[in-house]
Amino acid sequence: MEEINVLLLFDVVLGLTLVWLAWQTLSSLDLFRAIVLFIAFGLLMALAWVRLDAPDVALAEATIGAGLTGALLLSALAQLSASQKNETKPSLFIRLTLGVLLFFLVIALAYTVLSLPTKAVGLSVEVAKNIELSGVSNPVTAVLLNYRSYDTLLELGVLLLALLGVWSLGGVSTNKSSFPKSSFVNPVLDLVTRLLVPIFILFSGYLLWVGAFAPGGAFQAGAVLAAAGVLVFLSDWYLPSKYSGFALRLVLVIGLVWFVSMGFSFVLLDNAFLEYPPEFAGGLILLIEAAATLSIGISLAALFLGREPATKSDSNIDIDTGVNK
């Protein structure tokens, strides 16, 4: 009983801190401060998921929600010019309108939460009953890659669309930040990158493999891979232009293409789209997740770069110096 009380106290403190952090993040006028608070919010949110016995979501929240989104926001902030930063309070009218709308939203949310049945079984019994047919023993992976693989497929599509949007708006990178490696790169950062990147790649492979029977999977593995990419970009390494054309695009789409083609490949054998025969399901899921990990990792890293890397065909730009010829 004593132990339960201590844990309850911890949960209450955690919940209150989350609400407070969310408020601080939204009300901060200094964007840099807001981003740092957002990252802290993500880390505590991951802890909350652990407390809710959802380690898969916790992993995704920590790697993508806190880590990569934080890095993306910081890189976006760095690209905003000083004049674009709006650090004044919006007008009273806007604040009042938003306040009223949010008030109704809170009422609606509270009504929904309070009207939920107190004891819901959900679909976890069904999932547990059919786990043998899914080809994996981790129920989360079974849901994401087999029972509800539509969702995962569409998520890959959304990620690709997001990258296309960024590339359309961001223009072509001239590799200007990537001067030939010299004294510009901090030697400590360089060393840390050299030590960590191989470990990140190995760990990404581990998360991918372990996803079949324990928390892990394509999105978490992809996020770790992307973190390696972010570190590499920060250390001013860059993709040689001969790889940033077809090779890069192939890796970006391979997850989606492979997923769809695997989904169709058993339609001929009287299965529905994305329905796999149980005897192949385990292997197929691993293959799909491997391709998805690559695409997710490279897409997220490319999002961090914020622009389309220059290719050989961008001949009006000098790749080495970034100067228009």
């Binding site: 901090n186 400590v188 950062l189 060393l191 840390v192 030590l195 960590l196 470990i199």
Partner: peptide
């Protein structure tokens, strides 16, 4: 070991 490595690296970068 990983946190030692990352922590000392980041501390150096911030100070630098």
């Amino acid at each position: 070991i990983l946190i030692l490595l990352a922590g000392s690296g980041v501390a150096h970068l911030v100070a630098n």
